[in-house]
Design a binder for these strands. Structure first.
Length: 870
RNA sequence: GCGGGCGUGGCGGAAUGGUAGACGCAUGGGACUUAAACUCCCUGGGGCUGAAGCCCGUGCGGGUUCGAGUCCCGCCGCCCGCACCA
């Protein structure tokens, strides 16, 4: 019977279902919790999902075979803006859209044959999850982890709504195209900054995390040691006698040439009120929006306020105070001093406005004049660990490192009393207020007599009203006729419900904990959390390296503090793996010579500007590849091919997993997603690759059916099988699935070539089935059954390699002469080094190169290589 | 702009500082077939060469080392994140 994935995949999935194979149970076995980042229910699954969940499934099935009790759950990150956007654009309700998408995607996911415990499934928009999240919120509030303060948002004056950063394009609202305004609102914050130090220090303990992610988080938290000090003002309005400044380079104080304020600095605001010129500047600066990226990319501009401050080291020295668009109110004190000689941005700013550029230090040995000349055109920014010569120093040695100079400057300020050393963190508190409908309501009421009052726990959940519409601008919760009316839990009087909902990052910050007891009446159950936490292996995209993972680390600590998780779970993810994207070429129709939008490939910029052109993109299934290019099937028209990019609907370079599963089977999709590309790198989906995967799988099926006559042994094949056990096991342990695949190709090739038959051959096939099981579980069950395996493969233990079959008694050493490979020598594996050296020197090629001379050096790396230096 | 990462044949990629190109795809040749498809075997970085062999080759330019794809310095290109996308 030929390989028939459609039939056998269904059969085995039913068998696993019937046996309850993937139900996670607490028992005597050691536990293993593997989790892939749960999906947003956007509408359909895509290849990225297939890749992500296949990787997790390999780990889950492998650990299961290793004898672990495995928890491998699935859920839905279901709140968020796309549901509201859909409601606005197509009508309907966000709830219906979301649950409809979940149903579709669940149906698409199940045929992949993932070893998921579906009984634990939930969506973050479920009433139950909302209830438990609100309970957590109240506990956090009680524990002093939540507070309110003012913060700026992007306000769209036409749509009357707050915009997300991605909805602000060139300072304008994405729908209305109206210039955005920065508006201050009172919002809810989580005190993540309480944990700055701890979140930073604990990164050291996360041995199972990629170094790059730990580095990114460390930089994001951004601990810095600097000087906080005051400039006395000369002619400022009342109440602004001084300006607080924080700097990490106090050693450059003698090179200061200006002070710059954020447009949101209190002094800046006070000045703007009475000065049309400053007001206009600030208004312009605010149009950039609130995103740090936009601020940093914008041209650095400023305006002189006319105010002056005295230099702390010289009361006769006055510096101008500017308002500058690049100074952030959220970081430090909202005011900086500029030291143009040693900072690129300050340098640009000083040159633009003709401010002085005075070197504080120069290269070792430079004089003051030389150092000044050196920084006139370009700033001098050496590493802090480098020794430089201070030409305008005021503390410490003349020649010292930046680090030493900073310490000396702080010391100087503390002694003289004009400032103090301060450790600051870049990490800001986490603003969770969203002025939107489709999110978890913040369970708080505003009472006229009692103020802001948390909702009583017995009144939870506070659910969203269902009768809302999205046809008018603004937040539906704000304009709902009755939903806002509430009773104050404290005094029983009339109160107004909070209409802000929570950031969806809150939902995803504890779902991993909820999976341990998904139906409990409290956020977690102690026994289940104790047993299942932590997540042993977490898998997801690198794009979550900072925010999601940092918020989750904070949340776990907050849950420990409020008694919802054991102390041992404060770092919830023991190991993390970040996988790459699935990409595909892009097919686009365009006039010859015209550039392509948004690809960076514009060949002819002039044409791009003179003839704007909207390209039409085509799906991979709409095109046909011929020898001389790619053509549209329907019309025969030639199309352009743009190199691979992340699959996206707008570029139409998407391959629907549903089609692939229908035509090739789930195992082919899984196998291809694991082949070739290393998991952490992007993988390009190609039709040829998918076909190759399908061909290989049917070849394996044929190998299993071809039994051969008699019972012929083949020692070489058995050795190959045991080598495969060793190599595949190590590859899976090391998350190198592409290498595991390569080793299985080698084993299949060995089986093909072998003359083994009968039971000796079947024994090898059973090993192959077991090794392939985590990757292509359905085919592996077929092979297992054909090769006489007992019961379901999914219940079989992982094979063990026999060490005796892994060693060989001879070893071939390459011989290098002066670093170039010139030959090789085969010697017994246990030959003494001196004997190896003798043998090498006796080698014909070596003698030819040595030409009778003794070697200058002879390096023997045992078991690896020999290098003769002539 | 700032922070992080990546770059190896025609293509995806392999290589504890130790034989660069495992394994797969494409290509070319052959077998099977009336023919094709399927399948199987061989070939498979570039150059010189009949062959043995030699030279070049891991984005670019330097450096460390007996030995560098791997480590260090400086560039170029692409990707991810930048706090209200998820």
């Amino acid at each position: 019977m030929p390989y028939d994935p459609a039939h056998s995949e269904k059969r085995w999935q039913e068998a696993w279902e019937k046996a309850g194979s993937f139900r996670a149970v607490r028992d005597e076995r050691p536990k293993y919790y593997v989790l892939e980042m749960f999906p947003y229910p956007s509408g359909r699954i895509h290849m990225g999902h297939v890749r992500n969940y296949t990787m997790g499934d390999v780990v889950a099935r492998y650990k299961r075979a290793q004898g672990f009790s495995v928890l491998h759950p699935m859920g839905w990150d279901a709140f968020g803006m796309p549901a509201e956007n859909a409601a606005m654009e197509q009508g309907g309700h966000p709830r219906d859209w979301t649950y409809g998408n979940i149903a579709t995607m669940r149906d698409q996911l199940k045929p992949l044959g993932l070893s998921i415990d579906w009984s634990r499934e939930f969506a973050t928009c479920d009433d139950d999850y909302v209830a438990q999240q609100q309970a957590l919120f109240l506990d956090f509030l009680d524990a002093g982890l939540i507070y309110r303060k003012n913060a700026v948002v992007n306000w769209d004056p036409v749509d009357m709504t707050v915009l997300a950063n991605e909805q602000v394009i060139d300072g304008k609202g994405w729908r209305s195209n109206a210039p955005v305004e920065r508006r201050e609102l009172t919002q809810w914050f989580f005190r993540i900054s309480n944990y700055s130090e701890e979140l930073l220090e604990a990164l050291e303990t996360l041995k199972g995390w990629p170094e790059k992610v730990r580095l990114m988080q460390a930089n994001w938290i951004g601990r810095s040691r600097g000087l906080q000090f005051r400039f006395d003002t000369v002619n400022a309005p009342d109440g602004f006698d001084r300006i607080e400044v924080y700097t990490t380079r106090p050693d450059t104080l003698m090179g200061a040439s200006f002070v710059a304020l954020s447009p949101d600095h209190p002094l800046a605001k006070a000045l703007e009120a009475g000065d049309a010129r400053l007001d206009a500047f600030a208004a312009e600066a605010r149009k950039i929006g609130t995103s740090e990226e936009a601020l940093e990319k914008a041209e650095k501009v400023g305006i002189d306020t006319g105010i002056r401050v005295r230099h702390p080291l010289d009361p006769n020295w006055e510096l101008p105070v500017w308002i500058a668009n690049f100074v952030l109110m959220d970081y430090g004190t909202g005011a900086i001093f500029g030291s143009p000689a040693h900072d690129q941005r300050d340098h640009d700013f000083a040159r633009r406005y003709g401010l002085p550029i005075r070197a504080t230090f120069g290269k070792p040995g430079m004089t003051e004049a030389e150092a000044d000349a050196f920084v006139a055109d370009e700033p001098y920014v050496p590493l802090k660990s480098e020794t430089v010569t201070y030409v305008r120093g005021f503390s410490g040695k003349r020649d010292q490192t930046g680090e030493a100079a900073v310490d000396a400057a702080i010391q100087h300020a503390a002694t003289q009393g004009y400032g103090e050393g301060v450790t600051k963190f870049r990490l800001r508190d986490w603003g969770i207020s969203r002025q939107r409908y489709w999110g978890c309501p913040i369970p708080v009421v505003h009472c006229e007599s009692c103020g802001t009052v948390p909702e009583a726990k017995q009144n939870l959940p506070v659910l969203l009203p269902r009768d809302v519409s999205f046809d008018v601008p603004g937040n539906p919760l704000d304009r709902h006729p009755t939903w806002r009316q509430a009773t104050c839990p404290k005094c029983g009087g009339q109160a107004r419900r909070e209409t802000d909902t929570m950031d969806t990052f809150v939902d995803s910050s504890w779902y991993y904990a909820r999976f341990t007891a998904p139906h409990a009446a409290t956020p977690t159950l102690r026994e289940d959390a104790d047993y299942w936490m932590n997540v042993d292996q977490y898998i997801g995209g690198i794009e979550h390296a900072i925010l999601h993972l940092l918020y989750s680390r904070f949340f776990a600590r907050a849950m420990v503090k409020t008694g919802h998780l054991p102390e041992t779970a404060k770092e919830p993810f023991d190991a993390l793996f970040t996988q790459g994207m699935v990409t595909h070429e892009i097919y686009v129709d365009r006039p010859k010579g015209a550039p392509v939008f948004g690809t960076g490939l514009a060949a002819d910029q002039e044409l791009a500007e003179s003839k704007p052109y909207r390209p039409t993109y085509y799906l991979p299934e709409e095109v046909e590849r011929r020898e001389n290019g790619v053509f549209l099937r329907a019309t025969g028209e030639q199309l352009d091919v743009i190199p691979s990019a992340k699959m996206s609907k707008s570029k139409k370079n998407v391959v629907d997993p549903v089609n692939i599963v229908q035509s090739f089977g789930a195992d082919t999709a899984r196998w291809f997603m694991l082949s070739d590309s290393p998991p952490e790198r992007d993988v390009e989906w190609t039709a040829a690759g998918a076909e190759a995967a399908a061909k290989f799988l049917s070849r394996v099926h044929r190998l299993a059916e071809d039994k051969g006559a008699g019972d012929r042994e083949d020692a070489d094949l058995m050795r190959a099988a045991h080598r495969a056990i060793d190599e595949v096991t190590r590859a899976i342990e090391g998350f190198a699935f592409n290498k595991a695949v390569a080793k299985l190709y080698e084993l299949a090739n060995a089986v093909s070539k072998s003359s083994a038959s009968g039971e000796p051959r079947r024994a090898v096939l059973r090993i192959m089935a077991a090794l392939m099981g985590p990757m292509v579980p359905h085919l592996a069950e077929d092979v297992w059954a054909l090769a006489g395996g007992e019961g379901l493969l999914v219940d079989a233990p992982w094979p063990k390699a026999d060490p005796a079959l892994l060693v060989s008694n001879e070893v071939t050493l390459p011989i290098q002469i002066n670093g170039k490979r010139r030959g090789e020598i085969t010697v017994p594996a246990d030959m003494a080094q001196a004997e190896v050296e003798q043998a090498v020197l006796a080698d014909e090629t070596v003698q030819r190169f040595l030409n009778g001379q003794p070697p200058r050096k002879l390096i023997v790396v045992p078991g690896r290589i020999v290098n003769v230096v002539a």
